[in-house]
């Protein structure tokens, strides 16, 4: 399709003679959430880094829409304790020419729940708080495409549900395309339009339900794991309701007070 924000064709990446990924093709569309899953060492991060231009591909092509703005949320931030940096300052450093409309920004910072952290040094944040700050920074320049490298790493289960809901919300508000890496089949299914299962090459891809029946993914994740993709969709409302009474607002806020 020509309308793709980013289109990659037959990407091959080698490092010191070893093939990390090969024959990877994908299209990322506006308003769509694409989730990259796969075992450790499958080359998920390599693929994302290549798409971002952090690493060169040995073969293949990456075509980006002209003027495409990408928001990137790295897996983690290794910040030296010697660098005095408040959350506010860290966010300010990400401001560019295409700032979000103030209203939208306020709304999204509220959704990211970081107002109470703004004067804190970055180094004092918990894993989940850091992830939310990184996510907000990725949004600051109103990106067309958001690339999230394991957005829920180091976040507890209730936080993970909230994080995926936030990501869906962001997609709806900004209308941007989203590519994210995830390990967790259970969590991603509900929040995903397209799943790409990567194991050095694209094993299978498509809608979560469709992919869950693919022999390739059953081989990788087992019947139980694969069915999680399909099952979660059916159970989502129910699951969410039963947890919903415990999780939202109060509980997670209480957690961040310690």
């Amino acid at each position: 399709m020509t309308s793709a924000l980013l289109s990659a064709q037959n990407i091959l990446v080698k490092r010191s003679g070893r093939t990390l990924i090969h024959d990877v093709s994908l299209d990322l569309q506006a308003g769509q959430i694409t989730t990259l899953i796969g075992p450790n060492g499958a080359g998920k991060s390599t693929l994302v880094r290549t798409l971002l231009g952090l690493q060169d591909a040995n073969a293949g092509s990456i075509i980006k829409q002209t003027g495409l703005r990408i928001g990137y949320m790295p897996q983690k931030l290794n910040l030296e304790p010697t660098l005095p940096l408040t959350v506010q300052r860290f966010l300010d450093l990400g401001l560019g020419q295409h700032q979000l409309a103030p209203k939208l920004l306020t709304k999204l910072s509220k959704a990211c729940r970081i107002e109470h952290l703004l004067t804190q040094p970055m180094q004092y944040l918990s894993g989940g708080e850091t992830q939310r700050v990184l996510l907000l920074r990725a949004l600051l320049n109103s990106p067309h495409l958001l690339i999230l490298d394991e957005p829920v790493q180091g976040v507890d289960i209730s936080g993970q549900v909230a994080m995926y809901e936030l990501i869906v919300d962001i997609r709806d508000q900004l209308g941007c395309g989203i590519l994210m890496i995830s390990h967790d089949l259970h969590m991603v299914a509900a929040a995903t339009d397209q799943v790409i299962c990567l194991n050095q090459h694209v094993c299978c891809s498509g809608h979560p339900q469709q992919v869950s029946q693919d022999p390739a993914i059953i081989e990788l994740f087992g019947v139980q794991g694969a069915s999680a993709l399909a099952v979660y969709n059916h159970q989502h409302n129910h699951h969410h309701d039963s947890h919903g009474t415990i999780i939202p607002g109060k509980h997670s806020e209480a957690c961040h007070h310690d």
Binding site: L52, G53, L77, F90, R137
Partner: peptide, 18 residues
């Protein structure tokens, strides 16, 4: 100063931000 600081904080992020 700003780009140097950004590069010091996270080179990957700085690269993606231009």
């Amino acid at each position: 100063w700003q780009p140097l600081l950004n590069h010091t904080i996270c080179p990957e992020l700085a690269h993606v931000e231009g």
